[in-house]
Nucleic acid binder design. Structure first.
Length: 890
RNA sequence: GCCGAGGUGGUGGAACUGGCAGACACAAGGGACUUAAAAUCCCUUGAUCCUUUUGGAUCGUGCGGGUUCAAGUCCCGCCCUCGGCACCA
């Protein structure tokens, strides 16, 4: 066995460790990337922003540098293009992730947060990102959250922040309430704990007041269509009517919202949500017990259970009746949890003939089903499509014979005239639940008097600092107890404030994680301003953000909240743009290496993958199967599947998985930087595939780009002497050399503009492959190439630039321009097709390739073509100048 | 179920407004250098078939149709994967 040591591998590679340290130190000491505070308004600006990270205890993972490298390439490129570039970084350090980590490790969040930030900063610096570190922000810094609190006060002043006792999503395991957006399938997004509904007094932000503007202004944004669509769905605007149904025997009316007022005559019963306040009044003595127990039952269910059981609708009759105002029909009132208290009015008119949910319910409980729109077959299913209205008239009014859209208009107008209803717009979007029963968040700048008076903390007293507390942990509370936030255990000096002889108590809840990240992009513009959130002159110059890169998981939460706050600040005159982020890109997630998995049964016999369910059990026997990872030489491809080499009957599962600790497929960037260098990591992350796509990691791929950088190095540096390579010359470049160079300039430039970094790198590889064939390496050509490579692999380029005799960083060197003259080739290859199939090619001088007649003639004179055309009649000849000649013959 | 994105060699991926499918890289195979290995350099590499060779033929971008001189790209119908939403009245 011949083993080689790491030392030896190192000696073969270019000295990336030395180089990267050297230039990181240089950039740091010289503040190379500092964006001047005084604005040079003669220069065009470019604001390129990353979604700032939660400094988690796990440190950076390979997903972070993906987006960060992309933005760094843009930042470095734009600087060379003469732009004034703002490229900052900071920390989203409040909130659940940081706090959970603190709880798990039993250390105070302030301590862990500081430590984690330290580590993140070091890791980011080790990757050579060109951030202006003088603008670093930290959401947990009182100087920062002073302004988060200030924004809250603006919201409060405008009536956009209010306290309300509403049913909230209570997560006992986390000891806090959560926003709707933080719940996935009835479980907390963080940790996956069950969530229950319970009423609590909470701060709410009136995002619904901005629903229309949030929807409309999406139009002008250069964002992924899928993200815009998600926000549209989340806002969920629907037009319809609100109609009032009087309750029989009571002086009460039940208001319902419907998008189908045209089906009013088909309403045969009503349903109230279990939480609806009128349930008690409507319920008759006879039905009280069952209604009560149904409500009890429903309230105990978590959201998860309520949605999981959705297939089987349940409900109970209240004994009460309402009157359908269009036909004075007496219809029964039911309670069912398929009606949600939080949408519309919490009550519906049920039209089983034309709504599938009502249909199922009516079928189950034998309620009448009536057709009022023709076109379907309501004996089989509800007809929800457009049709012609039938059976819909009373003595003074009819919509019979009208198509659905017209019927809607007509009946809405009539309802308004009669005062029994009106046109209405409803949103799925609900007000933003803004309180958390947690320690690690911004305190609210709010005081309560003994009489319940709400007193905002005066602006000059901001920030309200978080009190230092040893015991910061949330207390999971019992279901029936009022939750006690950690701040309730704060010292009395903090909790109570005396103003004009009156004692006030501070708000004890804290703000949610999203508060600090809603506006951080503004603070970067003017990070040290103690007088203002941001100086208006600077804001006007830098906003909006020109490019924002971050994960698609923030499509709704962060990006919707930030837009909301931005619009409020716009109305308050703090910012000058309606929208914060002009262009948005989501980087795709990076999966672990592809794994080939073989399934084995209890007797250790292999089981073909098509017999295995998603949960890893046998489809036929239900047996839980073991797995074994296979190496690539144990498998082969057969048709669409991978199979076992030694037994091709057995199909193999070939998949890449999300990186996770438990799976053990997590790639740590530090380890890549150590083994191959930051430049290799950056280059590989960009070379993997299109930025937006999901892709899986490959160590071999990293080695590949590392080899490329080695080739770049050795093209310029003689390994033996560690000096400039003897083949470097001051010769005039040849036209061939200029052509490849200028093709590369052109391709790399346009690819960077379009964020297609993988193909830009491919072109640079082509250049290097070509350059190795040359007998001399003109310095002027090599220097241009180094400038092109620089945004991708800055360390190696700075070093080579310096060794080529420059004593300034290349950061502000002008970006190379390509010259169309050099791209021209003397001849062009023209493809000759016969009946659409390529049969030959011919070289023609460039000027001739534009001439249709000559091309056609020359093509027909070509031997190979003549041979093929023997005995055939030419029907047609298609000539595409500069490309091809296609001869159609029979 | 609904909405969005996507399916191209052994792998990751290229292909401008329809004009030589598979750039670039990885893997694999062969060769050079070396006592040997590593590193490096050169060559081959979609599949099947024909030919002694140079070379040639046929098929091939999820599946089935269509438009066109020409389709990965356009149109119609379907299948699958990923992401999101999901009693929203």
């Amino acid at each position: 066995m011949f083993l080689i040591s790491n030392k030896e591998i190192e000696s073969m590679a270019y000295p990336f460790r030395k180089i990267e340290k050297k230039w990181q130190k240089f950039w740091d000491e010289n503040k190379t990337f500092k964006t001047e505070d005084t604005i040079d308004s003669k220069k065009p600006k470019f604001y390129v922003l990353d979604m700032f990270p939660y400094p988690s205890g796990a440190g950076l993972h390979v997903g972070h540098p993906e987006g960060y490298t992309a933005t760094d390439i843009i930042a470095r490129y734009k600087r060379m293009k003469g732009f004034n570039v703002l490229h900052p970084m900071g920390w989203d350090a409040f909130g659940l992730p940081a706090e959970q980590y603190a709880i798990e490790t039993g250390t105070h969040p302030k301590v862990t947060t500081e430590k984690n930030i330290e580590r993140f900063r070091e890791q980011l610096k080790s990757l050579g990102f060109s951030y202006d570190w003088d603008r670093e922000v930290n959401t947990t810094d009182p100087k920062y959250y002073k302004w988060t609190q200030w924004i809250f006060l603006q919201l409060y002043k405008r009536g956009l922040a209010y306290i309300s006792e509403v049913p909230v999503n209570w997560c006992p395991a986390l000891g806090t309430v959560l926003a709707n957006e933080e719940i996935i399938n009835g479980r907390s997004e963080r940790g996956g704990y069950p969530v229950y509904r319970r009423p609590l007094r909470q701060w709410m932000l009136k995002i619904t007041a901005y629903a229309d503007r949030l929807l409309e202004d999406l139009e002008e944004l250069d964002w992924p269509e899928s993200t815009k669509e998600m926000q549209r769905n989340w806002i969920g605007r629907s037009e319809g009517a609100e109609v009032e149904f009087p309750v029989v025997g009571l002086d009460e009316k039940i208001a319902v919202f419907t998008t189908r007022p045209d089906t009013l005559f088909g309403a045969t019963y009503m349903v109230l949500a279990p939480e609806h306040p009128l349930v008690e009044k409507v319920t008759t003595a006879e039905y009280r017990d069952q209604v009560e127990s149904y409500r009890q039952e429903a309230s105990k269910k978590s959201d998860l259970e309520r949605t999981e059981l959705q297939k089987d609708k349940s409900g109970v009759f209240t004994g009460g009746y309402a009157v359908n105002p269009v036909n004075n029909e007496k219809i029964p009132i039911w309670v069912a949890d398929y009606v949600l208290i939080s949408y519309g009015t919490g009550a519906i008119m049920a039209v089983p003939g034309h709504d599938q949910r009502d249909y199922e319910f009516a079928r189950k409980y034998n309620l009448p089903i009536r057709e009022v729109i023709s076109g379907g077959d309501i004996s089989k299913e509800a007809f929800e499509g457009d049709g012609i209205v039938v059976n819909s008239s009373n003595n003074e009014f009819s919509i019979n014979g009208l198509p659905v859209p017209e019927a809607k208009k007509k009946i809405t107008k009539w309802l308004e005239e009669k005062g029994i209803g009106k046109g209405k717009v409803n949103y799925k979007l609900r007000d933003w639940l803004f309180s958390r029963q947690r320690y690690w968040g911004e305190p609210f700048p709010i005081l309560f008097g003994e009489d319940g008076e709400i007193l905002p903390v005066p602006e000059e007293d901001l920030p309200v600092e978080l009190p230092p507390m040893e015991d910061f942990k949330p207390r999971p509370s019992k279901e029936d107890e009022e939750p006690q936030p950690p701040l309730s255990r704060a010292p009395d000096e903090w909790k109570y404030v005396e103003i004009n002889g009156k004692i006030y108590r501070r708000e004890l809840n804290t703000m949610p994680q999203w508060a600090g990240s809603c506006w951080y992009y503004l603070r970067y513009i003017d990070p040290h301003n103690d007088e203002k959130l941001v100086d208006p002159q600077k804001e006007k110059y830098w906003m909006p953000v020109d490019l924002y890169v971050g994960g698609a998981e923030h499509s709704v939460l962060h990006l919707l909240y930030a837009r909301f706050w931005h619009k409020v600040l716009y109305d308050a005159g703090v910012v000058s743009t309606k929208e914060p982020f002009r262009k948005l890109i989501h980087q795709g997630i990076i999966l672990g290496e592809t794994e080939y998995t073989l399934y084995l049964d209890g007797k250790n016999q292999p089981v073909s993958a098509d017999l295995v369910t998603n949960n890893g059990t046998h489809k036929e026997t239900g047996e839980h199967l073991n797995t074994r990872k296979l190496s690539e030489d144990e498998i082969q491809k057969e048709g669409d599947y991978f199979v076992l080499k030694e037994n091709p009957e057995i199909k193999i599962d070939a998949r890449a998985f999300k990186m996770s600790k438990s799976r053990g497929n997590v790639i740590n960037p530090d380890q890549i930087v150590k083994g191959f260098g930051a430049d290799s990591l950056r280059l590989y992350e960009m070379f993997m595939g299109p930025l937006k796509d999901m892709k899986s990691w490959s160590m071999k791929g990293v080695e590949g780009v590392h080899r490329f950088l080695n080739r770049v190095w050795r093209l310029l540096i003689d390994d033996e002497t560690d000096t400039l390579h003897p083949m470097l010359t001051d010769d005039e470049p040849t036209s061939d050399q200029l052509r490849v160079l200028h093709q590369t300039i052109k391709k790399v430039t346009s690819d960077i503009e379009e964020l297609q970094f993988n193909t830009a790198i491919a072109q640079m590889m082509i250049f290097i492959n070509e350059a190795y064939k040359w007998s001399s390496r003109p310095k002027s050509v090599m220097e241009k190439f180094i400038l092109l490579l620089h945004p991708f692999a800055p360390h190696i380029c700075e070093e080579l630039w310096q060794r080529l005799g420059h004593n300034q960083s290349l950061t502000f060197e002008p970006w190379p321009q390509y010259n169309e003259e050099f791209l021209k080739e003397d001849t062009v290859e023209i493809v000759l097709q016969i009946n659409g199939r390529v049969r030959a090619t011919m070289e023609v001088p460039i000027e001739l390739s534009k001439n249709r007649e000559e091309l056609q003639e020359k093509a027909l004179r070509t031997e190979a073509v003549k041979k093929r055309l023997e005995g055939k009649t030419i029907r047609k000849v298609i000539v595409v100048p500069g490309k091809l000649v296609n001869i159609v013959a029979q």
